[in-house]
């Protein structure tokens, strides 16, 4: 691929932010840029800024007390730990799915490939009631698990189930293209130099795919932290045990405790944004890895 270097040239560097390069002849910069900035501000920036600004108006000790109350802390811990465990599962199942879909030909492959997107397309509430019913003590899977005294509903492990469903397409869709673009010659070279299949996989394939895998896992983790609809039905929402952080915001709102809701939300938002920063550096690293 021969493309112009994306590094800013001298002219770009001297430009003002959001001002266009004068050498460009295409029309509509002012209109499209103006509308983009206006719409972005109206729908996203101003409302988000309201939350941040509103949190500053809350008395600092009230803010700290709300955010560090045992019940809220337990909800943060639960949201983060279940999201992390689900992301680990997704690293495995997502990689497995991507591998099978790219490397093997079997009947129904195209159907599976299309159905990977189901969690993106299916409303979260529908996924939620499905898993709650499946894993309830009288449900199709719950009945079976009950014989071994395993109960997933009203338990953190049930939350993990819902979060695996929500997150796995992220991993598949980031790993799949990288796996498909891989030149077979690389592996052939490894084999001809005497590497075993496992060695070729571990030393050649895995390092190449790892940045994409990490991106997918981070995406699924970030999504899982804030997930609400698919979780609340299976979680049972028991205080200190299966109450996720978004639900804490919801219950504070139900009690008209707007300041409390804003405080809990701000911390959750900061966690999500720091995930975004991590993701950004991961992606920068990924780009470097493929250069």
């Amino acid at each position: 691929m021969f493309r112009a270097s994306p590094l800013p040239d001298k002219q770009t560097r001297t430009m003002l932010p959001f001002k266009r390069n004068r050498r460009q002849i295409l029309p509509g910069f002012g209109l499209s840029m103006g509308y983009t900035v206006f719409y972005l501000s109206a729908i996203v920036i101003v409302p988000l800024a309201t939350l941040v600004a509103g949190s500053f108006r809350i008395a600092p000790d009230l803010f700290v007390n709300t955010v560090t109350s045992p019940r809220v802390l337990a909800s943060y811990r639960l949201s983060l730990s279940t999201a992390l465990i689900a992301a680990m599962f997704n690293a495995f199942f997502g990689f497995l799915t991507a591998w099978t879909l790219v490397r093997y030909r079997f009947p129904g492959r195209k159907v599976l490939d299309a159905l990977v997107d189901l969690p993106f397309a299916l409303p979260t509430a529908v996924a939620g009631i499905c898993f709650a019913t499946l894993y309830s003590p009288v449900g199709w899977v719950g009945q079976f698990l009950g014989r071994f005294d395993i109960q997933l509903i009203n338990a953190p492990s049930g939350i993990v189930i819902a979060l695996i469903f929500i997150g796995f397409p992220f991993v598949v869709r980031t790993v799949q293209p990288v796996l498909a673009e891989l030149e077979p010659e690389i592996e052939e070279a490894a084999h001809s130099l005497g590497a075993s299949r496992w060695q070729a996989f571990r030393r050649i394939l895995l390092p190449h795919i790892f940045p994409a895998l990490l991106t997918g896992v981070t995406l699924s983790f970030a999504r899982a932290i804030g997930e609400y609809g698919s979780v609340i039905f299976i979680a049972g929402n028991l205080p200190f045990r299966t109450e996720i952080a978004p639900l804490m915001i919801m219950s504070k709102l139900d009690q008209f405790d707007y300041d409390g809701a804003a405080a809990v939300a701000l911390v959750l938002l900061l966690i999500s944004f720091s995930m975004l920063l991590v993701l950004n550096s991961v992606q920068r690293w990924q780009e470097k890895a493929y250069r």
Binding site: T12, M15, L48, A265, L268, L269, S272
Partner: peptide, 23 residues
């Protein structure tokens, strides 16, 4: 077009994906 702050603008566009639906 080429302009300064493009990467920043593009990452702002993705912001709603990072926000929990409840928030």
């Amino acid at each position: 077009f080429t302009f300064r702050g493009k990467t920043f603008l593009v990452s702002l566009l993705d912001l709603p994906f990072a926000v929990s639906p409840v928030i």
